[in-house]
């Protein structure tokens, strides 16, 4: 299937980074599933040669979690837009964070609803008026990193669509993370977002002679964006104590508020100490990992027999009178 994104779309960088990450990890194609939501980013699953499930607006995480829980041997990635995941799908976003199923969720964050011609999305800042808005945005923006941290995602990071190599590294780290990983990818929409453009991210408007320290730094870097790993920021929860966890959570939340002249990318928060949801299932179903729903023998004899294999006689005995 040919790719029909607009020329110069940030989505190209993201899909390239995904492909590079999957290739680097050497995951078998047939053990990998890419779920996607609705919108421009929703088409991503058609552009990668692994199982691709293009779902419904806002609902991508529901399908993805179901598949992963039925067959935990799969590597599951979910992708969608900011409107998809943080607007209509925000309830699922929060609930997925609480659950912490071992998979990766990537949001293509461009501040607009592209496929419906540029309405304001939940990440567009208050008062901004992108190209096709009749009037400036009347809502405050949601903070994706902050929301992920508050919801319980155990790996929270941000990438930039035009820094493909860095984004690839983040995707690899997210997929390898044991638990639910969230990746907020800043993705310029060249057609409808004429504020947060590629040039804007590259520091347009910031000059060495201008304003404060942030602007001068951005001008020197030729980018508003900087990498947390280039600073002394440590996202990792190192030991299982409430004070440690709270310190890392609040640090990530504070860091997520930086915007404008200095936009951090990289890993904001990582906690591998928390057991993924699959571990909690195993507490109730001891052989869940070896014998998950999709692998179970439900009939016999042999693979194609039609006699039910489940023996409910004890239950029926208990109901007999």
């Amino acid at each position: 299937m040919h790719n029909d994104w607009c020329p110069g779309c940030g989505d190209f960088g993201i899909v390239s980074a995904m492909q590079m990450a999957l290739a680097e990890m050497g995951l078998p194609r047939h053990r990998t599933v890419l779920f996607s939501g609705i919108g421009c980013s929703g088409k991503t699953s058609h552009f990668v040669n692994v199982y691709g499930i293009h779902t419904l607006h806002g609902r991508v995480l529901t399908f993805a979690q179901g598949a992963k829980l039925a067959n935990p041997g799969l590597t599951v990635l979910a992708a969608g837009g900011d409107g998809d995941g943080l607007g209509i799908g925000a309830g699922h976003f929060v609930a997925a964070g609480r659950r912490n199923v071992d998979m990766t969720y990537i949001i293509f964050d461009n501040g607009v609803y592209g496929l419906t011609k540029g309405q304001a999305s939940p990440t567009l800042k208050l008062g901004e008026k992108t190209k096709s808005l009749p009037s400036p945005n009347t809502n405050y923006a949601v903070n994706p990193i902050g929301l992920a941290v508050a919801s319980g995602f155990t790996f929270v990071a941000r990438g930039y669509a035009y820094d493909v190599r860095h984004l690839k590294d983040l995707i690899v780290a997210a997929v390898r993370h044991r638990g639910l990983a969230f990746l907020d990818v800043l993705q310029p929409c060249p057609t409808y977002n004429d504020i947060n453009t590629r040039d804007w991210y590259a520091g347009a408007g910031c000059g060495p002679e201008q304003g404060g320290e942030g602007e001068r730094e951005a001008a020197a870097r030729h980018s508003r964006i900087y990498k947390l790993e280039d600073t002394d920021y440590d996202p990792e929860v190192h030991f299982s104590e409430e004070s440690e966890v709270n310190a890392r959570l609040s640090q990530a939340l504070v860091k997520s508020l930086e915007w404008g002249d200095r936009i951090p990318t990289g890993v904001f928060y990582r906690n591998e100490i928390i057991t993924p949801y699959e571990g909690r299932i195993t507490d109730a179903i001891p052989n869940y990992a070896e014998n998950p729903p999709a692998a179970q023998r439900i009939a016999g004899p042999g693979l194609t027999g039609t006699e039910p294999s489940t023996d409910v006689s004890a239950l029926l005995d208990s109901l007999e009178i």
Binding site: G66, A67, H92, A95
Partner: peptide, 18 residues
């Protein structure tokens, strides 16, 4: 978290063969 997720997860499970 809601019935939408319930049916979405069930579809995901069915796609995985359960």
């Amino acid at each position: 978290e809601d019935e939408i997720c319930a049916i979405g997860m069930a579809i995901g499970g069915a796609l995985a063969g359960a």
